[in-house]
Design a protein around this nucleic acid. Structure first.
Length: 809
RNA sequence: GCGGAAAUGGCGGAAUUGGCAGACGCGCUAGUUUCAGGUACUAGUGAUCAAUAGAUCAUGCAGGUUCAAGUCCUGUUUUCCGCACCA
């Protein structure tokens, strides 16, 4: 028997697969649709960073590779593609630091990543590789942007945006984590800038509704729902002593009688009006507070969350529409300008924030829902309850009260039912070089004009220096020859947009491009899209739930609305892998010095061992620490499978002594693979191989089945053994084995016999024994007879195949 | 603060959903092979008591339901994740 030389074996089969093209999906054309049903497996394409892969990356790739390989053996035309999300800041920063063109950096990084991925033997359809920085790709990213613009979903607006002072870019709401830049963790500040925005808010309801029908893991659905944050309530009009009115949004109109003051966001425009009209006596104080609030960073705003600050407006008061009483109006930065109407009615008795504010400023607190002690704290457990001190709704339940008040306010013309969302529009421009140019020009006469689609792609121009500008503009702004252009509408002089798109642009539709990656008449051909879409199974990181996953659903829903893509949702099923941690249980990172490089593992144990260990390490959904000693278990197992060739004997059927276990194994591996439980599927295969070692033999029928089952995890060694054993064809062309349910049942089964729930003895009984016979057999046992003699039998329980429990008194 | 997930041997983790807790692997112990180390193979391995048979205790903690609870219910602690003044 030859030594198991994985270096040779793995290289050999990787080359064979490349040459034969077994993993190339059959492409539908206008005149011929593939006969096989399709199955589209997708994993998030990587950002080709300079560091290369670490062992965390292949977890997801390996998991769906097992699905892809299995589906092929089950007769599906499988699409399992790979590509590169290659625009982005780290590349640009590296390019600046080393004075190399980012395109060159990208090319080198991709080469390295691709080599690493290839060494792991994934069944990717490499001829469909896409690269978001390829002009033939971003031509269509720009095209989609133009469609969004033409449908009123892209607009340019001067606004206060999150700003990362280190990356020199604006940040979308989704990119600010704990008040800091998601990428570099620098505390985010604010900057007023004119930005391209995408109206994702217009799709908030559709994005929510779509979730109900999708097979996404619950935590993904939940996170997207929370992020969209829809709430139902009412916009209520409060008249003011300034002879105008303020609108506040509330989800709890039933607490109107408890509204003892109002608070406006310091940025609210009506303040300027009142100041101009000379209504306010303390303008200086107000100005100071506004300036202070404007300077606070995201981080400071959340930090100081304990101590409420504000200024009472001296000169304008509000009138509570329920009590008709005049109440004071404050400005305070605890009210967000960007949510609802930027103004609230404060109900201190039942809201922690309002309570705190009221205590600070010594404002009246009026209980309107029974149950708490408002002298101590706000009573916020008011989902249900009885209303008090509330005029005509006093004594009603909360839910009745809400409905009654809303009806009355509607009748009186003081309230309109309203829906609000936490979701904000998507800030879509970045002040950087290495991204897709936004195909818009600003004409002196016509304003913003889209480039004609025929002029796409708008190529990212060559540039001498990618250095960041002092002004916070993109380096492209320095290229006069590129910036100055003519208006596509009137031909007059115009300037190009110099910001580029965020990294999330190219990744918002890449999976569509895979269906037809070289199409030059559209994002992909209709035949290709209607055959391949939607994606059947998409696996990716939880960190993308409210970024990439939400953004790409938005783009797809829009493309569906304008008739470009065939289905209402892009992804039928979404799962998420847990992170692979360093050996010390901490997140793997260069700075912690606990990064494991897959190249080293492949060099020492081989790709098959690495792939299997990635899955064997534990529950796929949970994080798991890497262990250099545990990987040896998998390596030994593969060696044992290899050595089985020396124990092979002829046989075209499973032997009686293995038959049950063979069928059980097929069942378990089939089911567990389908549900991404590689750890237990592999454990079952180990159990089977251990049994064959006890028998010290394996026959051909058994060995074939084992090799096919194992091939989805460890494809190279299985192909090699298949060839060595001289079995016909290759494993990739075999059919997935099937089990017979009847044959998974042992003729006799060990039954535990309990007295009052304590196990006394175990019996081997026929699997189909009648309950009465089983109990009789149990009582015949001496150990049981001893326990039951002279005692009253209260109850006898028989669970077929499991246990007997005799309850005695 | 709000929402979610989780807690099982020395370690990673199983447990067909209420039916024999600890599958499988790592590690450890002993034996065989080997000049030796490693490899490989065989056996053992939750804890306590016991010479053995066996008994008792064990799934973060405290109660409860049940013939039977890691699994269901109530309370509680800890950890991880997400959101964080969203009215």
């Amino acid at each position: 028997m030859k030594k198991y030389d994985f270096h040779v074996i793995e290289k050999k089969w990787q080359e064979k697969w490349d040459e034969s093209g077994v993993f190339e999906a059959e492409q539908p054309t206008a005149d011929k649709m593939p006969e096989k049903p399709k199955y589209y497996c997708l994993i998030e394409f990587p950002y080709p960073s300079g560091e290369g892969l670490h062992v965390g990356h292949p977890r997801s790739y390996t998991a769906l590779d097992t699905i892809a390989r299995k589906k092929r053996m089950e007769g599906f035309n499988v699409l399992y593609p790979m590509g590169w999300d290659a625009f982005g800041l780290p590349t640009e920063n590296y390019a600046i630091a080393n004075n190399i063109h980012p395109a060159k950096v990208t090319e080198d990084n991709i080469k390295r990543f691709k080599k690493q991925l290839k060494s792991l033997g994934f069944s990717f359809n490499w001829s469909r590789e896409v690269n978001t920085t390829d002009p033939e790709y971003y031509r269509w990213t720009q095209w989609i942007f133009l469609q969004l613009y033409k449908h009123g979903l892209a607009y340019k607006k001067e606004m206060n945006v999150n700003w990362c002072p280190s990356c020199h870019v604006v940040l979308a709401n989704e990119e600010v984590v704990d008040g800091a830049c998601e990428r570099c963790h620098t505390p985010a500040t604010h900057k007023v800038k004119s930005q391209w925005m995408l109206k994702i808010t217009e799709y908030a309801d559709k994005l929510l509704a779509g979730l109900d029908k999708l097979d996404f893991i619950e935590r993904v659905k939940l996170q997207q729902r929370n992020w969209i944050g829809r709430s139902y309530g009412m916009d209520i009009e409060f008249k003011t002593s300034g002879n105008d009115s303020l609108i506040v949004y509330t989800t709890r109109p039933d607490t109107l009688w408890g509204a003892t003051y109002m608070v406006l966001s310091p940025e609210l425009p009506i303040l300027e009006e009142w100041i101009e009209r000379g209504l306010l006596a303390n303008v200086d104080e107000i100005r100071d507070y506004q300036n202070e609030a404007a300077q606070k960073s995201e981080f400071e705003r959340s930090e100081i969350n304990k101590n409420k600050t504000g200024v009472c407006l001296d000169g304008v008061r509000g009138i509570n529409p329920a009590t008709k009483q005049e109440i004071p109006i404050y400005i305070s930065d605890y009210v967000l300008a960007t949510y609802g109407t930027g103004a609230i009615m404060a109900v201190p008795a039942h809201d922690n924030r309002d309570y705190e504010f009221a205590k600070t400023f010594d404002l009246p607190i009026v209980e309107v829902v029974e149950g708490g002690d408002i002298s101590v704290e706000a009573y916020t457990d008011i989902e249900e309850g009885i209303l008090v001190n509330s005029g005509f709704i006093t004594g009603l339940s909360v839910s009745d009260g809400i409905e009654k008040v809303m009806e009355r306010l509607e009748e009186d013309g003081l309230g309109v039912r309203a829906t609000n969302y936490k979701l904000r529009d998507w800030v879509f421009s970045r002040q950087r070089y290495w991204g897709e140019p936004i195909p818009m020009v600003d004409c002196e006469n016509c304003g913003w004009q889209p480039l004609p689609e025929s002029e796409l792609p708008l190529i990212l121009p060559e540039i001498d220096s990618y250095e960041l500008t002092e002004t916070g503009e993109s380096p492209l702004a320095l290229l006069d020859g590129w910036v100055n252009t003519s208006c596509p509408n009137c031909g007059g002089s115009a300037k190009r947009e110099t910001d580029t798109m965020p990294q999330w642009a190219g990744s918002s539709w890449y999976y569509i491009r895979y269906t037809d990656p070289h199409c030059d008449t559209g994002i992909a051909s209709q035949e290709a899209m209607s055959y391949w879409l939607p994606v059947d199974w998409y696996n990716g990181g939880m960190e993308h739930t409210t970024l990439h996953l939400l953004y790409s659903r938005f783009w797809y829903l829009f493309l569906h609305d304008i008739g470009v893509v065939p289905t209402p949702e892009p992804y039928l099923k979404r799962t998420s892998h847990g992170m692979i941690l360093g050996e010390n249980g901490e997140k793997m990172s260069k700075s912690r010095g606990n990064v494991v490089n897959p190249d080293d593992i492949v060099g020492e144990y081989g790709a098959d061992t690495l792939r299997m260990y990635e899955l064997f390490i534990g529950d796929f959904e949970k994080p798991a620490p890497w262990s250099t000693s545990s990987i040896k278990g998998v390596s030994r197992f593969i060696e044992r499978v290899w050595a089985l060739q020396g124990k092979a004997i002829p046989g075209s059927q499973y032997r009686p002594e293995t038959e049950t276990l063979m069928h059980q194994t097929i069942r378990k591996v089939t089911r567990d693979t389908d549900s991404l439980k590689g750890n237990t599927a592999i454990a079952q295969l180990m159990t089977l191989v251990n049994r064959l070692y006890e028998l010290n033999s394996v026959n051909d029928a058994e060995y074939r089945t084992i090799l096919i089952l194992l091939s989805v995890f460890a494809p190279h060694v299985c192909e090699e053994l298949w060839e060595l054993m001289d079995y016909e064809g290759e494993i990739t062309g075999q059919k997935w084995p099937v089990w017979e349910e009847d044959l998974t049942i042992e003729a006799t089964m060990e039954i535990a016999v309990q007295i009052n729930g304590k196990i006394k003895v175990r019996l081997d009984l026929p699997h189909d024994i009648a309950p009465a016979d089983a109990i009789a057999a149990a009582k015949a046992e001496e150990a049981i007879a001893r326990e039951t003699s002279g005692k009253k039998i209260i109850k006898e329980i028989f669970v077929p195949g499991r246990l007997i429990n005799i309850v005695v008194g």
